[in-house]
Simulated assay, not measured.
Amino acid sequence: MIHEIDDALRRLIREEALPSATVDIVLEAPTKEWAARRNAPTINLYLYDIREDLRRRSRGLINEYDERGQVIRRVAPPRYVKLSYLVTAWTQRPEDEHRLLSSLLLCLLRFDALPPAVLTGSVAAINMPVPMTVALPPPEDRAFADVWTALGGELKPSLDVVVSTPVDSGREVPVGPPAREGLVAEVADRTGDGDDRIRHRPARSGG
């Protein structure tokens, strides 16, 4: 699932933001050692945080039906996972980096979700929206300066891109067989005179 979002972002940037630019798009950690080895204009999509998007968690179960309209199984709804990317541009001049970041920002702001055309694999199979945000303020429990400190590098202009992708939870609840016509239920009928009689009543078929 994560690699499918990686591919979707790279494809979106390549086709929509920088269609004619000769730029490498990589997923490596932008450490000092990596920066020293870089020898071409590069967009770095560094995945630095993975956590569940609790605001999008749904309760209950989803029914799945056969061709006769009968419930054949019940599954838990997909869970959403937030993938946070630190997006940076690397060239020989800060001016060129700013141009690249500007192109990325203007492109990504056009989309509230990843376009279905760039989705593949399990993410596409779920057939649900994949929300995306760009350049929002970080949550209180996380700061971009802390990310750069952990990487051992110097603070650099960057975009924070967060993708909330649906994930199949794999949870399934067994379903019993449907009720059939002709079943007989035994019902105790108390008459009040001490005589508990058993009367047979046909049961109605279940819906």
Score class of each variant (00 low, 15 high):
residue 1 M to Q: 13
residue 2 I to N: 10
residue 5 I to R: 04
residue 5 I to E: 03
residue 8 A to F: 06
residue 10 R to V: 14
residue 12 L to T: 07
residue 12 L to P: 05
residue 15 E to H: 11
residue 16 E to R: 15
residue 18 L to F: 10
residue 19 P to S: 11
residue 21 A to E: 15
residue 22 T to I: 13
residue 22 T to H: 14
residue 23 V to M: 08
residue 26 V to C: 08
residue 26 V to S: 12
residue 28 E to F: 11
residue 32 K to Y: 04
residue 35 A to V: 15
residue 36 A to K: 15
residue 38 R to W: 06
residue 39 N to H: 15
residue 40 A to K: 15
residue 42 T to I: 09
residue 43 I to V: 15
residue 46 Y to D: 07
residue 47 L to A: 12
residue 47 L to H: 10
residue 47 L to R: 10
residue 48 Y to W: 14
residue 50 I to V: 15
residue 55 R to D: 14
residue 56 R to K: 15
residue 60 G to L: 10
residue 62 I to M: 12
residue 65 Y to F: 12
residue 66 D to P: 03
residue 67 E to S: 13
residue 76 A to E: 11
residue 80 Y to F: 13
residue 82 K to G: 08
residue 87 V to R: 01
residue 91 T to H: 06
residue 92 Q to P: 00
residue 93 R to V: 14
residue 99 R to V: 09
residue 102 S to M: 02
residue 102 S to W: 04
residue 105 L to Y: 03
residue 105 L to P: 00
residue 110 R to C: 04
residue 111 F to K: 04
residue 112 D to W: 04
residue 112 D to N: 12
residue 112 D to Y: 03
residue 113 A to M: 08
residue 114 L to H: 04
residue 115 P to L: 02
residue 115 P to I: 00
residue 116 P to Y: 08
residue 118 V to P: 01
residue 120 T to K: 12
residue 123 V to Q: 04
residue 124 A to G: 03
residue 124 A to F: 04
residue 124 A to Y: 04
residue 125 A to E: 13
residue 125 A to G: 00
residue 125 A to W: 03
residue 131 P to V: 05
residue 133 T to H: 06
residue 134 V to T: 08
residue 135 A to P: 01
residue 136 L to S: 11
residue 137 P to R: 09
residue 138 P to S: 08
residue 140 E to M: 07
residue 144 F to T: 10
residue 145 A to E: 13
residue 145 A to I: 07
residue 146 D to T: 15
residue 149 T to F: 11
residue 152 G to Q: 08
residue 153 G to N: 09
residue 153 G to K: 03
residue 153 G to M: 07
residue 153 G to S: 14
residue 154 E to Q: 14
residue 154 E to S: 13
residue 155 L to Y: 11
residue 156 K to Y: 05
residue 158 S to I: 00
residue 162 V to E: 05
residue 166 P to Q: 07
residue 167 V to D: 06
residue 168 D to R: 12
residue 169 S to C: 03
residue 170 G to V: 06
residue 170 G to P: 05
residue 175 V to L: 05
residue 180 R to D: 02
residue 182 G to F: 05
residue 185 A to W: 00
residue 189 D to A: 10
residue 189 D to M: 10
residue 191 T to K: 05
residue 192 G to Y: 04
residue 193 D to Q: 11
residue 193 D to L: 13
residue 194 G to Y: 05
residue 201 R to E: 14
residue 202 P to M: 12
residue 202 P to T: 13
residue 203 A to W: 02
residue 204 R to W: 00
residue 204 R to P: 00
residue 206 G to P: 00
